[in-house]
Design a protein around this nucleic acid. Sequence first.
DNA 1: CCTGTTGTTTCGTCAGTCGAAACGCCGTTT
DNA 2: AAACGGCGTTTCGACTGACGAAACAACAGG
Lengths: 271, 271
Amino acid sequence: MTQTKEEKTRETGDAYLVASVERAAQLLLIISEMPGSGVTELASATGMTKSLTFRLLYTLESQGLVRKNAERRTYALGYSALILGERARRQSPLIATAEDVLAALSSKTRENALLLVRDGLSSMCIGMKESPQPLRIFASVGRAGPLHAGGGPKVLLAFAPEDVRETVLSSPLEAFTDETIVAPGALEASLARIRRDGQTLSVGELDPNTFSIAAPVRDHSGTVVAALSVNGPTARLDPASEQDFLREVLDHAVQLSRRLGWAGPDAAVLR
Amino acid sequence: MTQTKEEKTRETGDAYLVASVERAAQLLLIISEMPGSGVTELASATGMTKSLTFRLLYTLESQGLVRKNAERRTYALGYSALILGERARRQSPLIATAEDVLAALSSKTRENALLLVRDGLSSMCIGMKESPQPLRIFASVGRAGPLHAGGGPKVLLAFAPEDVRETVLSSPLEAFTDETIVAPGALEASLARIRRDGQTLSVGELDPNTFSIAAPVRDHSGTVVAALSVNGPTARLDPASEQDFLREVLDHAVQLSRRLGWAGPDAAVLR
DNA sequence: CCTGTTGTTTCGTCAGTCGAAACGCCGTTT
DNA sequence: AAACGGCGTTTCGACTGACGAAACAACAGG
């Protein structure tokens, strides 16, 4: 509201950004989060003017990215958004390949199976197959999270470039639960263990009473491009199932990596 | 190139369009069609300047809508696009519900099962489940087509608002094959039959040697919101399978409509 | 009938966008 | 090795078209 000066310096300073487009993209993401809103509501949610919001919506609608419910005067994502998603999926060998693996892993373990990638300093879920059981962790594709808490995120961080690790380790670590690792030293040690073991189990770091078992996914060059994980309520984590889950997650992560062209250690080394 | 005047009149005349956003959206759709292109290639594909293309890409990348392959200097859709698609799917009861029905219909008939909607004066595929058989029609979500040729499109046209029907009937009808209906009178008659029968079979109208069987999908208010169709090679269309397909398509279309809240004619009327 | 809210439209100003052209960086060719 | 062509990136100034503010219209509820 009164950050005019700051905003301008940021925008012009940050370089080649086209402000209108940036705002339109933000509006689009906001709409995806709160479909069925009207102009005014969206305007206040984005901090933009009513006129601007209206114009952007008008333009996005003309491209089919948003759809307007004429009588209720309300907006939601349009078919072009659907198509973009469909094509994005096909364009990414990782996601396209992962779908089968997620389905297999979820049906084997009867728990949520997730595929996470690192996006800057956040983790993001880009694929998921939900547990068939009624009691399950709520998760959704597109959900962003931290890098320092939870099995999948810690795997991503463990294999991230050094500058990313340093940045995360040197910034304050938010405590989501009592179990969240907040001491940089302890986190570093945890990451080292993950690199040594090639997988990890974390309990209650992100949410109380939930566990997460994760392993890295590698591409043809051996680079870790994602983390495959299974999560569920700790109530279902007894010693037997724990061994089971660890084996299955590792197994499927390796399988996925192979399909991406990875020619790393063969099955004998694993187990 | 030399259409400066025309472009301007169109843009300013068309009203509240924000040109940058419009162009960015077009660029985004182009990228989805030709992933792995560079700045220059995309610039010539969209007819935009290199500088503009670069700036738009830069902006879209900052929002995660496109992803840049740093070493190969090449662009593809980003994770935000994926997320938008995911959310668009969830926001549309039609699409979310249709997935099961498409899977069931496709497995029953062993042919492609499609869900089409009308988008202005075009038909568009918004859901699909491919035939399990090796010989199948190529189709993809997001593909736009005409309204006057093919089973699904004609169903959409038959139940479209009158002004849409009039516009289509009074404009030249492109002949895709020898079987395409190009005479307005004949098309009108065909549409009337579709409205009477509540389903249709069309052979070779859009592509030679392919058939399409379609039926309307209705929402809670009884409005036709989509067409459910099955298509395949005419080689597999013998009298027995034809009856089978007609029954299955109608059956599944009704089932889908019911799930959308339609309380129309009960099963006795159908058959 | 009034009132509060929402969506739409208008208008003038100025910031921000755009095109052209120059630049630097490759990989290939001569 | 040097010259070339093609690419992505950067700069710059002119101009325009995007923006905010505020008026207007269209409702819904009381």
